[in-house]
Amino acid sequence: MDLISTLIQSLIGNYVGLFILMLLEGMSLPVPSEIVMPLAGAFSRDGFMSLWAVVAVGTMGSLLGSLVDYYIALYAGKAVIRRYGRFLHLNERRIDRVQSWFNKYGVAAVFFMKFVPGFRALISFPAGFGRMKIGKFTLATLGGHVIWDTVLASIGYVYASSWNMLIYLMDKYLNYIAIFLAAGLMMYFVFLLLRTRKGPLKD
């Protein structure tokens, strides 16, 4: 099995890896469900996993991650999240935008935000800040995750051959990609070095 396929299958092509990745996604960490779930669906088409088990495992991981964020916000409070949110790639502007949605739409915001990439995990925080009842939060979150994960996994299942081709091309041109990235990083560090020697750039 080629390198890229091996790496992806070890991360996503098994239930444990899928659960962990979706747990991290539910906790607002930068793990894109838009990639993880379709790839898991593609693996189910190839017989590595069951499609419905993929949906169930992915959804449970996302739900648990969302509950972790909910309880962090519930017990830690907004001030702590604002101070340490950078470690979860949160910023005050994004939190405020999601908070305004939650204040305006409540349970509906929790449900519909699950279909908005980049903000879907963040809704757990204002729900916790606002002390939303855990039953309502869990049902709205579960409903959103089930629909979202089912759609993404089904797309991967239907277009499995396309995903396999993409993985094949990535593996075939891996060396060229690595060289390109290394050259780009080198140029970036040279730029930083020259900028430091010359002092701050002026507008």
Rank of each mutant, 00 (worst) to 15 (best):
M1P: 14
D2G: 04
D2R: 15
L7G: 15
S10C: 07
Y15W: 00
V16D: 07
L23R: 03
L24I: 02
L24N: 06
E25C: 02
G26K: 00
M27C: 01
S28T: 03
L29F: 12
E34L: 06
I35E: 00
M37Q: 11
M37N: 10
M37K: 13
L39K: 00
A40E: 06
G41R: 07
G41L: 04
A42C: 03
A42D: 09
S44P: 05
R45T: 09
R45F: 15
D46M: 15
D46A: 07
F48L: 13
M49S: 12
W52N: 12
W52Y: 07
V54H: 05
M60S: 07
M60V: 14
M60T: 14
G61M: 00
S62H: 01
L63K: 04
L64D: 03
S66F: 01
V68M: 11
Y70N: 04
L74C: 09
G77W: 08
G77L: 12
V80P: 11
R83V: 12
R86K: 05
L90E: 00
L90Y: 00
N91Q: 07
E92S: 01
E92T: 00
R94S: 08
I95F: 01
D96G: 04
R97T: 03
S100Y: 08
S100D: 09
S100L: 06
W101D: 09
F102R: 13
V107E: 15
V107G: 11
V107K: 11
F111C: 14
F111A: 15
F115G: 09
A121R: 01
S124E: 01
P126I: 14
G128N: 09
F129K: 07
G130T: 14
R131W: 06
R131V: 09
R131T: 06
M132K: 10
M132L: 09
M132D: 03
M132W: 06
K133H: 10
G135V: 12
F137W: 08
T141L: 01
L142R: 02
L142D: 00
L142S: 02
L142W: 14
G143K: 14
V146N: 11
V146Q: 12
I147M: 05
W148G: 04
W148L: 07
T150A: 11
V151N: 05
V151D: 01
V151C: 02
L152G: 01
S154A: 08
G156Q: 08
Y157T: 15
Y157H: 10
V158T: 03
V158C: 13
A160W: 03
A160S: 10
A160P: 03
A160M: 03
S161Q: 06
W163L: 09
N164G: 13
M165K: 11
L166R: 03
M170C: 06
Y173S: 01
Y176W: 14
A178M: 13
I179D: 15
I179P: 07
F180Q: 15
F180V: 09
L181K: 04
A182K: 13
A183E: 10
A183Q: 09
G184T: 09
L185S: 02
M186T: 12
M186G: 02
M186Q: 04
Y188V: 05
V190N: 10
L192N: 08
L192R: 07
L192C: 12
L193F: 11
T196K: 15
T196Q: 10
P200E: 03
L201W: 06
K202Q: 14
